[in-house]
Design a protein around this nucleic acid. Sequence first.
DNA 1: GATGAGCGT
Length: 144
Amino acid sequence: MAMRNTLMSFLSRRTSTTTIPTLQNPILGCRCYCSPPSTASNNTLFVGGLSWSVDEKSLKDAFSSFGEVTEVKIIYDKDSGRSRGFGFIHYLKEDDAVSAKDAMDGKALLGRPLRISFAFEKARGGPVVVPRLSNTADGASDDA
DNA sequence: GATGAGCGT
């Protein structure tokens, strides 16, 4: 008497985040999207209103208290060399990013109020997802 | 000697 877990095999296969993009479901007949459209905000935070003298380590030091910061970047101007006054903060978890945003948004750093928002999914190796514009049904049926 | 909404030199 030997029990075979063959049926249990493909029932427990849900730990793979790297699904094969070329595989399609013959039943549903649709592709498997790795990025659900429900996530309008990832663990990337957009920080604006920065002073033109703020460094990345200053933001790292100010935002690492709310969660585990994995990446901090401030955008500088390549023409003038000065900071553009905004930057990005990557958190390990989105929950920490929300906490940091909720805690630091509206506060001031180096004498200037901060404007924090969730950043768009900027490449870093992936496709760009843009928020849909005001998709109001104005009578234009442009569905493909 | 500049300036101040935004989304990646």
